[in-house]
């Protein structure tokens, strides 16, 4: 559905997007992650044709961005960053304008407007000027605007920024709902949002693509670094000495076990070590009573932090 091919974009001397390639299949909900300034917005702007790449190309629904930008824009509903809106016209006028430009036949316009107004819950403010509306309503006006022509592809740049938790849940539900039949790309730096809504994640950092996969795949990819928790009934001094000597332990920290006589540690294994197995052997060798032993799941937060903060090399 969307093919981004070796796309590079420079602003002056800054390389905002550096040779990025990925494809999005029909029906995918793609979460586009990255720290601020990583190039998320620039990439989205290139897919929508707001700006052109310096090199490489984008194809959407079989059309090339350079040859057929208008055709591409017909397939896309786009909610830009910060949800810009006209302030001096009413919600109704705005939706009517979009319906006109989006070539919705005159006799169907009113019905389609009613439909999106209903989906987005705008019935109460339909004839108010957009400038008078609260932030939550404005966000919904933005969403209503980008789906008025029932596009196959929705590109939403931080759709939940500035909303209260209830509104966030509402918008997520809506995105999930839409994702059943549409291709959706959402950019965000709120990670639970991605786990909650997306079936695929792309992480970009400093203009480069650093990870691409399902949220589970990304977690597994990093699981060599996952912390291991061990609980034992044994003398404290002995346990700590053994852990300090063990080659597979990079560091460890005591955590409360909540049980008399039981010690509990969270262990960061050294790279590539099979820490769970090694810990089991260690306990058996020393005759410790094992009360628990498990590998913690790596959260998407962890993956994100690892990939976007580590220095090169």
């Amino acid at each position: 559905m969307i093919e981004v091919e070796n796309v590079t974009k420079r602003f002056g001397t800054v390389v905002a997007v550096d040779n990025v390639s990925f494809t999005v299949k029909k029906g995918e909900i793609l979460g586009f992650l990255g720290p601020n300034g990583a190039g998320k917005t620039t990439t989205m702007r290139m897919i929508t044709g707001y700006i052109f790449p310096d090199s490489g190309t984008v194809r959407v629904a079989g059309y090339d961005i350079f040859e057929n930008p208008i055709e591409i824009r017909k397939h896309i509903g786009y909610l830009p960053e910060d949800n810009p809106l006209y302030t001096d016209i009413s919600v109704m006028d705005y939706l009517e304008f979009l319906a006109q430009v989006r070539d919705i036949p005159k006799e169907k316009r009113r019905a389609r407007i009613d439909e999106v107004v209903d989906i987005c819950g705008l019935g109460d403010v339909l004839y108010r000027d957009i400038g008078e509306l609260s932030r939550g309503y404005r966000q919904r006006v933005g969403l209503a605007g980008c789906m008025i022509h029932d596009p196959e592809i929705l590109i939403l740049d931080e759709p939940t920024s500035g909303l209260d938790p209830n509104q966030v849940v509402g918008i997520r539900e809506l995105i999930k709902e839409l994702g059943r039949e549409k291709t959706v790309i959402i950019s965000t730096h709120i990670l639970p949002e991605v786990s909650a809504t997306c079936n695929r994640v792309i992480i970009i950092n400093k203009g480069k693509l650093v990870a691409d996969g399902s949220p589970e795949e990304l977690s597994n990819m990093m699981s060599g670094r996952a912390s291991v928790v061990i609980g034992v009934r044994a003398p404290k001094e002995e346990v700590e000495n053994r852990l300090r000597e063990a080659p597979f332990v990079e560091s460890f920290a005591e955590t409360p076990s909540g049980e008399e006589g039981v010690l509990r540690y969270r262990i960061t294994p050294s790279d590539g070590a099979k820490a769970t197995e090694e810990l089991f052997k260690l306990a058996v060798q020393n005759g410790w009573v094992l009360t628990e032993l498990y590998r913690e799941r790596v959260s998407l937060e962890e993956v994100f932090r690892q990939l976007t903060t580590s220095e090169e090399g």
């Binding site: 824009r73 960053e81 810009p84 006209y86």
Partner: peptide, 14 residues
């Protein structure tokens, strides 16, 4: 200033 130019220029309009 409003940023609406981004909406306008991603509509299927020349």
């Amino acid at each position: 200033k409003l940023g609406t130019v981004e909406i306008l220029m991603t509509l299927p309009v020349k």
